[in-house]
Design a binder for these strands. Structure first.
Length: 904
RNA sequence: GGGCGGAUAGCUCAGCUGGAAGAGCAUCGGCCUUACAAGCCGGAGGUCACAGGUUCGAGCCCUGUUCCGCCUACCA
């Protein structure tokens, strides 16, 4: 092995393949080769001037803070299959890689780093902190990109982008400013999801809900006129300080007496009204709802419809503010809750406390509890944008699988304005300035120096934009927009977006909105939604549960191609993938099989065969005609499956062809010619072997780029050693051959039946047996197929002599089988006890009986002959006849055997 | 509460427009046959969740039920 490895290192082109496939070496070498040669860097001119069709994909940019996980691995594999396939189809393919600056996530990483040094971001100040993040990015930001490299992704590295790089920042400003001047961005005081820890607003979809055990407190609110009380249920008693009303259902007769009156707000003492609103659920709690507009989303909405004031009592860090009674000011909200409960109890206003399970919003980044909070934020008015994005599906953009359309519509139909400001430092700072002197608000792409109105000093908005704001522009910002670059002209709109459904809303819908609005064209023609990768139990992989299968570890152990093939084989549309290491290991065997079949081929291909394929086809043996026929079918299967995103079918089709057909049958049958003396036959079979192997490498290359390229580079007669740029193999209609397929099926049946007899009767494998076949009732080509391939039957079924002909018959003491009408005899004399064979035939007959009964029932069912299509009826009748024949023959053969048994 | 998906061999899953149930892994038996023991040959193993319906015919279409998973809204 060692000398082979050394040979490998010197260069792949001259060296024969080493005995074992060494993925790490091969992957590193070809990965470097592709990048250094810019193999995957297309020239826009070939589209704009050369008339080539464009095919483009923008990678879903992983977070710079991220590490490659199985979801990425699947995502990259599928995109790479599409890109490599489309190159084979002659398209000009651009696959844009890049990373996302991931505002909150990245800021948190660096803040954690600072914490270890005993510092906080405020100690550094904004500028220094941002410098620090850039520094971090310089050191660690390429980690995920290098991991993408290891997947073999055929991205154009010269097109790599970062959502915070200069060009993209320009695009972000352009979009913000234009939306603002179009009235689609506004600023206002609204209630938002607030993370006290991250100290920022979050979008609705950045809030995750988790079940929590809480308490439900019931509190008395006395009527101001002394005419009774209302009991209100709440999980957050501390917010009561900001209550502005109590609401009941308008038809709730228990409370009609109170509507329109005032109640006294406990501990505060002020009067607040009792209002009626159908929003209130009569069944829940007491049916009385306290309204705290500043600290509850729904209360906020109710307050607006009822014109109630908004009184925040908790500040943006989670402490009680000046609106709270003096006794509570400055308390953390949790401490305040305790004090309030105690005070209420003391005053006899607390009815009771009960356990209460409910789901609580958490920050998707730091898992702190989200507190609704009123503050000044920037919003995108999404209504008009969403409408256009909705209308474009499926007319201009199709979603695969289509069931996701409904989810997409659902979300867009219920969309609320998008809060885009974040109170953090790492991100695109909002391009808005306020004049300190006259209050003038400037929103523009270029930094202003002073107020154009009064010349006063300007302060830029402190907030940065939601990370998804820049991600939403990704399909065109990466291509150079707002400049009209050649790249943009050639490759926008992109061909397909490949992603998991978890970011259908976050990202896909927003790209649709922005793409349509700013480019007047959808950003992608197809959206392919792939599965989530789960663990063996179907659970989401996560670090905390420790069920993560690390793709990099799998690559190290089994090679990239094995991992890619596994993910491809499991990527059936619309289903989650339950992955286990076992499966990856299993498909490594397949890589090894391919490798060894190539080694076999090379051993038998001293150079390029002299014969052309057409010459080789003349008088070609069955195996050659058959495998070439199958190759044509596989080309169709692979092409159609890829175009229809049926990735698992690509894998399945190739697996079956390579292993079960090419290796198990063709290669075994070809050995006769390859090892034989007939030079002409040898050369012809070599040509077929080379043709099938090389074209199979092309077909398989999109799924397994490395091993195929490595093999390709040592195949004789290949002029262009760059497999990634080789065209999809041309069709050869002259190789279509149904007769060969039929003949081969029969041949396989005969060999199989013979092998079964041998093994089932535990005949010593080394023992060569005679074989007799009666072809009298076989299909018309049977005799020819068997005589032509008699030597192969001998070889494959370990037979001494094959005596084939119509009416031939074996001794009564024979192992027997019936294949498509032909009777097979394996004389058993002195070899085995006949009892075993009688029993085996009983079993076979039992199977036939079962099938026969089922088919008879079907055919004789009332109406079948009349209603079913004629061709089906005919086919079923033929099947039945075949069964009947086989049954009769087998029974007769068994009788013969039994009589031999009796005679001893 | 609303929506979506799943239930097929011991395990993980295929099964396109309805026409005699498939693969991989695991298992059992036999083979170191000169590309591959990471291999070769053969066997066993399924009332396709349950109940109805449509049809000449249902794993596939329709209705309902039961479990499982996910998404989404709400939870005072």
């Amino acid at each position: 092995m060692s000398e082979n490895s050394a040979g490998n290192a010197s260069g792949p082109l001259e060296t024969a393949l080493p005995k074992g496939y060494e993925p790490a070496d091969v992957e590193a070498r070809w990965g470097r080769h592709w990048e250094e040669n810019k193999t995957f860097t297309p020239d826009p001119a070939e589209v704009l001037e050369g008339g080539k069709q464009p095919y483009s994909i923008v990678i879903p940019p992983p977070n710079v803070t991220g590490a490659l996980h199985m979801g990425h691995a699947l995502n990259l594999t599928l995109q790479d299959i599409l890109c490599r396939f489309m190159r084979q189809q002659g398209k000009s393919v651009l696959w844009v890689p890049g990373t996302d600056h991931a505002g909150i996530a990245t800021q948190n990483v660096v803040e954690r780093q600072l914490k270890k040094e005993g510092k906080k971001r405020d100690d550094l100040g904004r500028e220094a902190f941002i410098d620090r993040v850039w520094e971090w990015r310089k050191d660690y930001g390429s980690r995920i990109l290098n991991q993408i490299r290891r997947m073999g992704a055929s991205v154009d590295w010269t097109s790599e982008r970062f959502t915070l790089d200069e060009g993209l920042s320009k695009a972000v400003r352009e979009v913000f400013v234009r939306l603002f001047h179009e009235g689609l961005i506004y600023k206002g005081n609204y209630i938002v999801n607030w993370c006290n820890r991250c100290h920022t607003a979050l979008a609705d979809d950045e809030v995750e809900h988790a079940p929590k055990k809480g308490k439900l407190y019931r509190i008395r609110y006395k009527l101001a006129d002394g005419g009774g009380e209302l009991i209100v249920a709440t999980t957050r008693p501390e917010t009561l300080l900001g209550d502005v009303a109590v609401a009941v259902h308008p038809e709730d007769e228990r409370y009609t007496f109170a509507v329109g009156k005032n109640v006294i707000l406990p501990l505060v003492g002020k009067e607040i009204p009792v209002i009626a609103d159908a929003y209130v659920d009569r069944e829940f709690g007491t049916g009385c709802l306290k309204i705290t507009p500043a600290h509850d989303m729904n209360d906020w909405a109710l307050a607006r419809t009822h014109n109630l004031p908004v009184i925040p009592v908790i500040d943006d860090k989670g402490f009680m503010n000046e609106n709270a009674p003096a006794a509570y000011q400055g308390l953390a909200s949790a401490a305040c809750r305790e004090k309030i409960v105690a005070d209420l109890d003391e005053q006899g206003l607390l009815v009771d406390v009960a356990d209460h399970d409910h789901s609580v919003g958490e920050c998707y980044r730091c898992k702190s509890v989200i507190e609704p909070h009123v503050s000044e934020q920037w919003f995108v008015k999404v209504g008009p944008l969403a409408k256009a994005a909705r209308a474009a599906v499926p007319a201009e953009t199709q979603i695969f699988p289509p069931q996701w359309e409904k989810t997409y519509y659902e979300w867009l139909d219920n969309i609320r304005d998008w809060c885009i400001s974040r109170q953090i430092w790492w991100g695109h700072r909002i391009p808005a300035w306020t004049c300190e002197a006259c209050g003038e608000l400037l929103v523009q792409t270029e930094d202003p120096t002073s107020c154009p109105k009064c010349g006063g000093a300007l302060t830029q908005e402190h907030d940065v934009l939601d990370t998804w704001f820049s991600s939403a522009l990704w399909p065109f910002s990466t291509l150079g927009w707002p400049d009209e670059t050649d790249k943009l002209k050639a490759y926008y709109p992109t061909s397909v977006l490949v992603t998991g459904f978890d970011i259908l809303f976050f990202w896909v819908a927003r790209m649709m909105m922005m793409g349509i609005h700013f480019k007047e064209q959808v950003p992608f023609k197809h959206v392919y939604i792939h599965a989530l990768v789960r663990d063996e139990q179907g659970k989401k992989m996560s670090k905390s549960t420790g069920n993560v299968i690390d793709p990099l570890e799998m690559i190290a152990k089994y090679g990239t191609d094995s991992l890619r093939f596994t993910l491809t084989a499991f990527a059936a549309m619309g289903r989650d993938i339950k992955l286990s290491e076992k499966r990856i290991e299993g498909y490594r065997h397949f890589v090894n099989k391919i490798w060894n079949s190539a080694r076999f081929a090379l051993m038998n291909l001293p150079g390029e065969p002299a014969a052309s394929l057409d010459a080789a086809l003349a008088n070609a043996p069955l195996a050659n005609r058959w495998i070439l026929h199958r190759l044509e079918e596989v080309k169709d299967e692979v092409e159609n499956a890829t175009l229809e995103y049926r990735f698992n079918d690509i894998a399945q089709s190739l697996y079956k062809f390579i292993w079960n057909e090419f290796c198990d049958w063709f290669v075994e049958m070809a050995k006769g010619d390859l090892y034989g003396e007939d030079e002409k036959a040898k050369d012809a079979t070599r040509r077929v072997l080379l043709t099938v192997l090389s074209e199979t490498m092309v077909l398989l290359h999109p799924v397994m780029p490395f091993v195929t390229q490595e093999i390709w580079s040592v195949l004789p007669g290949i002029t262009d050693k760059e497999l990634a740029l080789a065209p999809f193999p041309a069709r050869r209609p002259q190789c279509r051959n149904e007769a060969a397929a039929r003949g081969m099926a029969f041949f396989q049946g005969v060999v199989g039946a013979t092998r079964t007899i041998r093994t089932e009767l535990t005949i010593d494998p080394a023992k060569k047996l005679p074989l007799i076949i009666d072809t009298a009732d076989g299909y018309p080509g049977a005799q020819a197929v068997l005589t032509e391939n008699a030597h192969l039957i001998q070889q494959l079924a370990r037979i001494e002599t094959a005596d084939i002909g119509p009416g031939k018959t074996g001794p009564r003491a024979s192992g027997t089988a019936v294949v498509e009408g032909a009777r097979i005899f394996v004389p058993l004399k002195g070899i085995v006890d006949f009892g075993a064979e009688v029993a085996r035939l009983d079993k076979e007959l039992g199977k036939l009986d079962k099938q026969f009964a089922a088919l008879t029932a079907k055919l004789s069912a009332p109406g079948f002959a009349g209603h079913a299509p004629a061709d089906i009826v005919a086919a079923e009748r033929e099947k039945l006849a075949g069964l009947e024949d086989a049954k009769a023959k087998l029974a007769e053969l068994q009788e013969r055997l039994k009589s031999a048994l009796v005679e001893g």
